[in-house]
Nucleic acid binder design. Structure first.
Lengths: 193, 193, 193, 193
DNA sequence: GACTAAACGAGACGGTACGTCGCGTCTTTCA
DNA sequence: TGAAAGACGCGACGTACCGTCTCGTTTAGTC
């Protein structure tokens, strides 16, 4: 007994071309100026192929995000045992990256896609925001397991707080100052020297 | 010596009609589906009048926000002397409001306008996000002046942290749970009973 | 010794289904709105089958005409010995038929196919116009053989003249009046009582 | 008391550009391959402008015909007093013209437009076929007034007959032979030397 | 009070992108 | 190997808005 599979199968080549083109155009144009027609042209694909499989601009971006063709350029914090030091290093690295205009533009484009998406919003949230949160959460969690009782709140909650503060800064292109970073660290990792 | 003022003066009636129409359409359609043509039609105004005075969709929305035709339905926290209690009450009230779908839709529309706006972003930021921050900031500041040294961080920073966490929840339509509220309070007003 | 006949033979069922579907759609939609995809769907046939055997919309219509699935609803004139009377009867019968809207629509669809076809035009012409001309020609010819020297022009030429006048009236949906018929008869069969 | 005239008035320049472009493209491409998009591009005009004022391909062609931007390249027969001679000269001239491929193509394109147009058919008929008929009719009529009782049928009817025979030949790209011309003349101007 | 000049409503303009339809080709599986 | 199914790149469809441009019509000063 086999699953019926009639007609020409979906072209993996086209699928990848669309996602790659989308990623490229998000960087170049942002989300608002991204057009289905532009994606189709850049991917060398018919518009119908996009509408057949994704149905909307948001849909394509969601999948490009989910499959990692388009990535919030954020890594996970290191784990040297020193939680505050690790977070500080991570935030300072971020500070540098975010000041680069192309990164900032991409992040804004992604956030724009996120808020515009409406119902698919939570899907995108999971594929984009979650990874950042996860990286932070893992770091906080590792600390919590090594030094139980030291954290002032559950690891996930702290991760969320740091992530939220961070994203809002990035969204509105406000600079990440060293003072701000230290205040944030004081709040979430209070006892540290 | 007076400034020359020749020709027909700007029509206040049209100005108001545009801003009111914009506010109404933001609620009904969201930001992406808002069109200049739609605003003009709804306001009974020529398109040129809009382009003459505002120049872009974002511009109209900015002014509608700034003039309060379109409001993030957020009030300032009360000040009963009990900081934690006041914030808790404020957050619980918010929780109720945000769960109403029309409020949630409006907030998303506004956030969408914010992120999409690009260069005007900071202008909008100031007219929308700032008020929320200001309300919180004032409450934290009042406490700080009454009980210096009790807060773990500068009032403005705490306001920002709470605001950021809050907005991200609203943006992605995640429910505000009571547990989450209490964790947040533990973080920013640690010593409170 | 026989011609090699390898692989699955052409499906007569599909061939007939296509031609029948084409005939039906010509009546319903006319020639311009007739589509290969529509024919394929209506016939329950793959598009490729049509392209394999006919290659174009015009091709299918030609064959449908040639095989009589789609017929200019015109019969040949009777032959009672009285040429003028026979032609008159035939034209009056036509008059009745042509006033029916579905007949008129079909005739227009066919004429549209004819003029649009371009190079294949003469092929279609032969399969459609010729039969009408042939019917007339036969009738004129029979008279000419029975009464040599009575006709004012060669039978084929007279047939052509009558046919042309007729078709132009049908093409532009002008009514066939009795006066017009009699004038035409006076012209081509002058001596008749 | 004045007729209201609100908004920007229709651009005569655009109207003419569209009709001229249409005429040019009809010659180059024929009717079937004529596209609204092509006309708009060639005329340097937005598609919407065409849809606003004409609504369909057929509509534009009708007006181009009616306004003479696109003309069946047929002149009226001369009037030297010799009806048969004049008609013969006219038909021979036609024969020459029609054999030119670009003329033949244009005529086919126009006929194609005519038959495809459906309901507007009679409008087109009047603006295209009628002029030819009128030219012939005038010539027959002049003769009839000069020599009453010589013609075998009313002038208009004779004009129609000649016109119909002619058009059908042109439609199907059949050559106009001298023999055919003389037979036709024998039929409609029988008594002539 | 006539004149001037800017703002107004209306709406047509050249465009861009939309989402759909049909083309003719291709690549599968099934008979 | 023919046929159905159906995805593919492509191009045109007719529509919606964009931002700009006339129009005729207010509605204030200024002469």
């Amino acid at each position: 007994m086999s699953v019926e599979q009639r007609g020409r199968p979906r072209s993996e080549k086209s699928r990848v071309a669309v996602l790659e083109a989308t990623a490229g155009l998000m960087v170049d144009c942002g989300y608002e100026d991204l057009t289905i027609e532009g994606i189709a042209a850049a991917a060398g694909v018919g518009k119908q192929t996009i509408y057949r499989w994704w149905g909307s601009k948001a849909g394509v971006v969601v999948e490009a995000l989910a499959e990692g063709y388009l990535q919030m350029p954020l890594t996970a914090p290191a784990d040297s045992g020193d939680l505050r030091g690790d977070l500080r290093g991570w935030l300072l690295e971020l500070k540098g990256e975010i000041e680069a205009p192309e990164v900032s533009r991409l992040v804004q484009a992604i956030m724009s896609a996120l808020t515009s998406a409406g119902e698919t919003s939570s899907a995108i949230h999971e594929s984009l925001i979650q990874p950042i949160m996860d990286g932070l959460d893992a770091r906080f969690g590792a600390h919590d397991r090594a030094h139980p009782g030291q954290l002032t709140a559950p690891p996930q909650f702290l991760a969320e707080t740091v992530g939220a503060s961070l994203l809002l800064h990035v969204m509105f292109a406000r600079p990440l100052t060293v003072e701000w970073i230290d205040q944030l660290l004081d709040l979430v990792v209070p006892g540290s020297p």
